[in-house]
Each structure stands twice: as structure tokens, then as C-alpha cells.
Amino acid sequence: MIFIVVKFQTKPEWTDRWLEFVGPFTAATRAEEGNLWFDWSRSVDDPTEFVLVEAFRDEEAGAAHVGSAHFTQAMQDLPQALASTPRIINQTIDDTGWSELGEMAVR
């Protein structure tokens, strides 16, 4: 699986509408056959920072995502709302999804 985490620092005037702005990109990515998840969160420490956690089945699915029309469009559209270049962690890991946190098992 390709596991990716990206931090986006938005311009203050874009912060409140960021999730709506990325909505079409999010929906199109989630509809990709090889997408496992594509989830946004907002930092509790910095309201202008959004964190994207995404995963793709394999290299082929990741390449299809980067080659898609909606990805290309997002790379053109999103920078206008950003205060800085996004920061990314992109790793291939030998797993297929989320596991339970054993140290905090709910009984």
C-alpha cells in the first residue's frame, strides 16, 4: 500500500472554505478504484493547517491517481489558497489497511 500524509498551510482568507474548495478533488479521488482512503483533518493547534491522510492499493493505483485529470487540475487550483508549499510523507508499506490499537482495546 502507498501511505501518504500531507500537511497544507492555508492562507487565512481560504481557511474556512478549504474543505469546500477541495471537495470535488476529494470526491473524485475517493471514487478511484485503487484509492483506499482520502481523509482530511484540521489541526487543533493551528486552524490554518489541514492534514490529508491518503492511501492507494499499490504503485499502479498511485500512478493512476497522479495521472488523473482531477489531480492535474488540483495541482493548478490549490496553490492559490496556500500560504506555503505542502509537506509530505510518502511511503510504501506492507499492509492493506488499518489495524486496531491493541494498547487501547475497547471492551
Rank of each mutant, 00 (worst) to 15 (best):
W37L: 14
G34E: 09
H65I: 02
E20W: 00
L19C: 09
V66K: 04
T29I: 05
E60R: 10
G23A: 12
E32V: 09
G67C: 04
E33R: 15
E32S: 08
A69L: 02
G34C: 10
A28T: 07
P24C: 09
A28S: 15
T26Q: 10
E60V: 07
F21A: 08
D46G: 01
R30G: 11
G34F: 13
A55G: 15
E60M: 02
D58Q: 10
V44Y: 10
V51G: 04
S41V: 11
A61S: 14
G67Q: 03
F21E: 09
V22T: 03
A63C: 00
V51A: 09
E54P: 08
A55W: 10
S43Y: 05
D58L: 06
G34T: 10
A55R: 08
F38L: 03
A28N: 15
A61L: 08
T29A: 08
L52E: 04
G62H: 01
E32D: 14
A64S: 13
F25A: 08
F50T: 00
R30D: 11
F21L: 14
V51F: 13
F56G: 03
A27Q: 14
R57S: 12
G62A: 02
R42C: 04
E59F: 03
A55Y: 04
F56Y: 15
W40M: 05
E60Q: 11
E49A: 01
A31H: 14
D46Q: 02
L36C: 11
R42H: 09
E59G: 09
F25P: 01
P24Y: 10
S68Q: 05
T48V: 06
R42P: 02
S43V: 04
E59D: 15
A27H: 13
E60N: 06
N35M: 04
A28W: 10
G34N: 09
D45S: 13
E60S: 05
E20I: 00
T48M: 02
R57H: 14
D58P: 06
L36S: 02
L52S: 05
A55C: 12
N35T: 13
E54H: 10
T29D: 06
P47G: 10
V44A: 12
G34V: 06
P47F: 07
F25C: 04
A28D: 14
L52C: 08
P47V: 03
A63I: 01
E54T: 04
S43H: 09
L36I: 15
D45A: 12
E32T: 08
D45G: 12
A69H: 02
L36R: 14
A55M: 08
D46H: 03
G62R: 00
H65D: 09
S43E: 10
H65K: 05
F38M: 03
R57C: 09
E32R: 08
A28V: 06
G34W: 10
E32H: 11
F38K: 00
F56E: 05
A63E: 07
A31W: 12
E59C: 02
S43N: 10
V66T: 11
D46F: 00
L36F: 06
E54Q: 12
D58C: 03
G62C: 02
D45V: 05
F38T: 02
P24S: 10
A27L: 13
H65N: 07
A31E: 15
F38A: 00
A31N: 15
E60A: 14
A31G: 13
A64E: 15
S68L: 07
N35V: 06
D46V: 01
V44R: 14
A63P: 00
S41C: 13
F21S: 03
